[in-house]
Amino acid sequence: MGAAQNAAAQDAAAGQRVFNQCRACHTIDQGGRNGVGPNLHGVVGRRAASIEGFRYSANMRELAEGGLTWTTENLNRYLTNPKDVVPRGSMAFAGLRQEQQRKDLIAYLEAQK
């Protein structure tokens, strides 16, 4: 079990480095401010468009009303190509093409609860 925990920690550590690309628009600290994008603390498992005071695109709000939740699967799709999940969303990020980077980033996001 220790080896599995170490592997997860290494993935989360690598994901923290990947998250540096996100810091231009997002914060991740508990209770942190919103930037150009919403604060991502606790995003895994959270209903989309649910951060108070952040102005989400109409498309993101519609999808949230339809039940969009940031599961690891939905995050993986979104991080691959945001427009695949939210076609008329306002996120300018083109996506992470490398699967390992997405896995590491999601591991890091999961650790931020």
Results as ranks from 00 to 15, higher is better:
M1R: 10
G2W: 06
G2Y: 08
G2I: 14
A3M: 07
A3N: 07
A4F: 12
Q5V: 00
Q5A: 03
Q5T: 04
N6F: 11
N6K: 13
A7R: 12
A7L: 11
A7N: 11
A7W: 03
A9Q: 08
A9L: 08
Q10R: 01
Q10C: 06
A12Y: 04
A13R: 01
A14L: 14
A14Y: 14
G15I: 09
G15W: 02
G15A: 02
R17C: 13
R17Q: 15
V18C: 12
V18F: 15
N20S: 12
N20P: 03
C22R: 07
C22F: 10
A24T: 01
A24S: 03
A24C: 01
A24K: 03
C25D: 10
C25S: 02
H26L: 07
H26M: 06
H26D: 05
I28P: 02
I28G: 06
I28C: 06
I28M: 08
D29L: 08
D29A: 11
Q30D: 15
G32Q: 07
V36Q: 07
G37L: 11
G37V: 09
G37M: 12
P38S: 05
P38I: 10
P38T: 02
P38L: 03
N39W: 01
N39R: 07
H41E: 07
H41Y: 12
H41D: 10
G42P: 15
V43A: 10
V43Q: 06
V43K: 01
V44N: 06
R46T: 05
R47C: 01
A48T: 03
A49I: 13
A49V: 09
A49K: 08
A49M: 13
S50Y: 13
I51Q: 14
E52F: 08
G53R: 10
G53N: 14
F54T: 09
R55S: 13
R55H: 11
Y56Q: 04
S57M: 05
A58C: 00
N59C: 04
N59E: 07
M60Q: 11
L63K: 12
A64F: 00
A64C: 01
E65Q: 02
G66Y: 00
G66M: 02
G66A: 10
G67P: 12
L68H: 11
T69Q: 12
T69F: 09
W70S: 08
W70M: 00
T71H: 10
E73L: 00
E73T: 03
E73K: 02
N74K: 09
L75H: 13
L75A: 14
L75I: 10
N76R: 00
R77H: 06
N81H: 15
N81I: 05
P82S: 10
P82M: 03
K83V: 05
K83H: 08
D84P: 07
D84I: 00
P87L: 04
R88L: 00
R88Q: 07
S90K: 15
S90G: 15
S90F: 15
M91N: 13
A92F: 02
F93G: 07
F93R: 11
A94S: 06
A94G: 05
R97Y: 02
R97E: 11
Q98A: 15
E99F: 07
Q100E: 15
R102S: 03
K103W: 05
K103P: 05
K103I: 12
K103E: 13
K103T: 14
D104Y: 05
L105N: 01
I106T: 15
I106D: 14
A107I: 09
L109V: 01
L109T: 05
E110C: 01
E110N: 04
A111Q: 06
A111E: 04
K113R: 14
